[in-house]
Amino acid sequence: QVTPQEKEAIERLKALGFPEGLVIQAYFACEKNENLAANFLLQQN
């Protein structure tokens, strides 16, 4: 279960064009650090 703040962060990451499953994995792998997760996702392409 995610908090409203976490859900907002996940939605912002999804808005970058990444699928939800990948976003969630990256977000939690980066210890819920939205900026770190965004950098991680962008570097995967």
Rank of each mutant, 00 (worst) to 15 (best):
A9H: 04
A29D: 12
C30G: 03
Q5Y: 09
A38I: 15
E34M: 04
F28E: 15
C30F: 08
Q43H: 02
Q25L: 02
G21W: 06
R12F: 01
Q5L: 09
G21D: 15
N33G: 01
N35L: 06
A37R: 00
N33F: 00
E20F: 03
K7P: 03
E11A: 13
F40Q: 13
E11M: 12
Q44P: 08
T3V: 10
P19H: 08
V2R: 09
A26K: 05
T3P: 08
Q43M: 12
L36P: 01
L42M: 13
K7G: 12
E6L: 03
P19I: 07
N45H: 15
L36N: 05
P19Q: 07
E6I: 07
E6R: 04
C30Y: 15
V23F: 00
F40I: 08
R12Q: 04
Y27V: 03
L13R: 01
A29I: 05
E8C: 09
L22S: 13
F28I: 10
L36H: 09
I24Y: 14
K32Q: 08
A26Q: 08
N45S: 08
V2E: 13
N33L: 02
L36D: 13
L41F: 01
R12W: 02
R12T: 03
I10W: 02
F28C: 10
P19M: 05
N33C: 06
A26I: 04
L41R: 00
P4F: 12
A29W: 03
C30M: 14
F18T: 03
N39S: 14
N45G: 11
E31P: 00
P19W: 01
I10Y: 02
Q1C: 02
A29G: 08
E20D: 08
V2P: 06
E6H: 11
Q44E: 11
E31A: 06
V2W: 01
N45R: 13
G21Q: 12
K32N: 06
E6D: 03
E34T: 04
N33Y: 01
K32I: 00
A38P: 00
N35Q: 12
E20L: 05
N33W: 00
A37S: 08
Q1N: 03
G21L: 08
Q44W: 06
A38K: 14
L36I: 04
L22W: 08
G21H: 03
L36G: 10
E8K: 12
P4R: 10
L22F: 06
I24H: 14
N35P: 12
Q25P: 11
I10M: 11
L22H: 13
P19K: 07
L13K: 00
A38F: 03
F18N: 05
C30T: 05
Q1D: 01
L42K: 15
L22E: 15
L13A: 01
E6F: 04
T3C: 13
E8A: 11
Q5F: 14
I10P: 01
L13D: 02
P19E: 13
A37G: 01
L13Q: 00
I10T: 02
F18I: 07
I24A: 11
E34D: 05
L42A: 12
I10N: 01
E20V: 04
Q44M: 06
I10A: 00
E31D: 12
N39Q: 14
F28M: 15
A15R: 02
K32L: 04
L13P: 01
